[in-house]
Amino acid sequence: MSIGLWLAVEPIYLFIDRLLGSINLANLISHFCINFVFLAAGVQIAHSIGRCDIATKIRRFSAVGLPLCVALMTVLFFAADLSYSSMGLDDFRDTDTAVVLYKLSMYVYPSVVSAMLVNPLLKANTGSVYRVPFYSKKLMAFGFAFGKISPMGHLVELSNRQLDWLTDLIVYPAMVCVLAGVTLGWISALLTHRRELQPSPRLHHQKVS
């Protein structure tokens, strides 16, 4: 995941891509990372809500689906005419259909994993004394619902290049909701852990007596 985050920083992206020949291989690597993050995160989130069956389902699908999606991305990447470094490949999207298809292929695997997680997260009602896990799961469900339809943005873009902003309208709310849900869950777990470590006032009184 850290590799994908570092490659989202433009100076680092351009530096790494120059080392790789200035053909945007850094973009392909970042797309690989995103797909593998969805595998790891999807399994972890499924376990966190007690749905080992969903985690197993994600693993089984990934055994075939992930290599196929990676292969599809690779083929479309090299089919595109990428003559110089361009973070996000935005310079090529208006003129090269292969670039749009390549970017579309990046969302195929995440959309399937997202689809597997939406309903289990919506149905997960287990909460804590702070009730944050309940809301964090609903936020993640909302985010993954956006992730489920993420390929639609580029599909629309194929028919009308002026609608290239639609993908951002889908992807960014998905990212914000999922990250917010994970963060709230982490905060809740931290607060719960601290509360468990605090000695009971009654027990403390007995020790003093």
Rank of each mutant, 00 (worst) to 15 (best):
P199S: 04
M87K: 15
C33P: 04
G65R: 07
C177P: 09
M73W: 07
I16Q: 04
N27H: 14
A180D: 06
Q206I: 13
K207R: 11
V37Q: 06
V182L: 11
T56A: 10
V108D: 03
S114H: 08
D17W: 10
Y13D: 08
G185E: 09
F32W: 14
Q198S: 06
L19H: 03
D90G: 03
I12G: 07
L197S: 09
T56R: 14
V9R: 12
L190S: 15
R194E: 05
I3G: 01
D94P: 01
A41Y: 11
P201S: 01
Q206T: 08
S111Y: 02
A8C: 11
L104D: 04
V182S: 06
L121Y: 12
P151M: 06
M87E: 15
N119G: 00
L72G: 00
V75G: 05
L89T: 07
P67A: 05
H154N: 14
G65E: 08
S22G: 12
F78Q: 05
M175F: 14
V182A: 12
F36V: 08
D164G: 00
K57G: 12
L184M: 10
E157Y: 05
V132W: 15
I23C: 05
L190E: 13
V129P: 00
F142R: 06
D53C: 10
V113Q: 10
L179V: 13
L25Q: 03
N125L: 08
W6C: 07
A115H: 08
N119P: 00
G4K: 14
M106L: 12
R60I: 13
V156M: 13
N35Y: 08
Y109G: 01
H47C: 01
M175V: 13
K138V: 14
V113G: 11
Y102M: 01
L72C: 02
